[in-house]
Amino acid sequence: MIALVVVSTFLVLLLGVLVAGLLRSHADILRSLHELGVGVGDPTALPREDRAGAPPGGPALGPAPAIAGLTPSGDARAFAPTNSDRLTLLGFLSSGCTSCAGFWQALQQPEDLQLPQGTRVVIVTKGPELEIPAQVRSLSTGRVPVIMSSEAWHDYQVPGSPFFVLIDGASARKVGQGVAGHVSQLIDLVHRARFDERNGDGAQSAETALDGPEREAAADHVLRAAGILPGHPSLYPRTLDDVFPDRRAG
């Protein structure tokens, strides 16, 4: 009888060790699957790339290819938007589209557009085979590059004009693209793309760590994006009620 109890106890202990080993092996497999981003089981667990931050540019808008074509005067120009850390705004315009007229004027005065500092502006029309170079030449002021390239329209999958693409040179990717009816809508698109990109790649936390002139520039950028420009009444409070409007309501 004693021998039977000893053998049974030994068998129970042995089975317990085996079950514990199997559970541990199972946990290792689940952990590995989670790290590979195909985890099952715990729905709150994040795949590795989410913990590290999404790729810059958020949902894939894709890489930004180089642009090469002719200038309206018959010279050649090639442009590599990814050879610096700067932003580049591509404006795909036509000489004949009526809604492009305002953009031809505005994009060739980029200093008045309140774009993020250092943004390059390039106007891209279709190639000479589909455009009238003389008309494009008459619209060009020479202040920003104007490149005639049907290939660029194809590469950037431009559905029609006017169409705009914002490129981040640092990540060599398109960070925003779309259609705008007015210049103000275009500026809004640019700032929203920048905001989305910063939130997507975790740069927001880096921004809060800025100091000195960079911090001031970042604050100016956020204020401009919110429509608060120099001279805005909210910047010059006269009473505490101006600062805490809720207090007046209460």
């Binding site: 180089a66 642009i67 090469a68 002719l70 018959g74 050649a76 090639a78 050879n83």
Partner: peptide, 24 residues
């Protein structure tokens, strides 16, 4: 890889290069 061509000069530009070909 972008190709630039004008005035009898052409280049299949290496990655990262930009260029101008012109006559003043």
């Amino acid at each position: 890889m972008a190709t630039i061509r004008a005035h009898g000069i052409a280049s299949q530009l290496p990655s990262g290069f930009e260029a101008k070909i012109f006559v003043r």
